[in-house]
């Protein structure tokens, strides 16, 4: 039950791209073909292991509809990672990525790790956005990219875990100030800063200390 770190994630993207299904697949390992429209924000959580460390992921799955945009914006600030999702069978969801990215960059802390997800990779016959296009967009904007299927679970684990790895690396590099909870990262109860053997020890100097390792 105890964890070394806790990361807060948000999932963003147009309505109907499969955000809630991705979360459900990740937390419950199941797929629900007909999912209710998300109202506001829903919460899910799961424990993962990275480099032998237990990491708790708290995930806030946001509503994609425009009407909820002002609510979802409140969640950018406190998140360490974001999954930006589009639907490979609907080009307009890909076209809206820039808007989402602008929104995220504007309201989040600058270190937030953003993973670009092209979901519904199982629907190859209805594909409208080529994988290369996703890759190009990610390269251009400095994002990590992956195509997933919440239905077949392909790459779903990887999407969440790779994002966590990226955050974990940033912590090791000292980029994140882990003592500031507004960054969406929390140190586990048994890993309090009073324990000198851990990165981030020494309170405020945590980021510097991490830097020299």
């Amino acid at each position: 039950m105890s964890y070394a770190y806790l990361f807060k994630y948000i999932i963003i993207g147009d309505t109907g791209v499969g955000k809630s299904c991705l979360l459900l697949q990740f937390t419950d390992k199941r797929f629900q073909p007909v999912h209710d429209l998300t109202i506001g924000v829903e919460f899910g959580a799961r424990m993962i292991t990275i480099e032998g460390k237990q990491i708790k992921l708290q995930i806030w799955d946001t509503a994609g509809q425009e009407a909820f945009r002002s609510i979802t914006r409140s969640y950018y600030r406190g998140a360490a990672g974001a999954l930006l999702v589009y639907d490979i069978t609907r080009r307009e969801t890909f076209n809206h990525l820039t808007t989402w990215l602008d929104d995220a960059r504007q309201h989040s802390n600058s270190n937030m790790v953003i993973m670009l997800i092209g979901n519904k990779s199982d629907l190859e016959s209805r594909r409208e956005v080529k994988k290369e296009e996703g890759e190009a967009f990610a390269r251009e904007h400095g994002l990590v990219f992956m195509e997933t299927s919440a239905k077949t679970a392909a790459n779903v684990e990887e999407a969440f875990i790779n994002t966590a790895k990226e955050i974990f690396e940033k912590i090791q590099e000292g980029v994140f100030d882990i003592n500031n909870e507004a960054n969406g990262i929390k140190i586990g109860p048994q890993h309090s800063p009073t324990n000198p053997s851990l990165p981030g020890a020494g309170g405020q100097g945590g980021s510097q200390g991490g830097g020299c390792c």
Partner: peptide, 12 residues
């Protein structure tokens, strides 16, 4: 308001 409740919870 459920949404305010959630945001407040999100903000630790």
């Amino acid at each position: 308001n459920a949404n305010i409740q959630k945001i407040v919870a999100f903000e630790n």
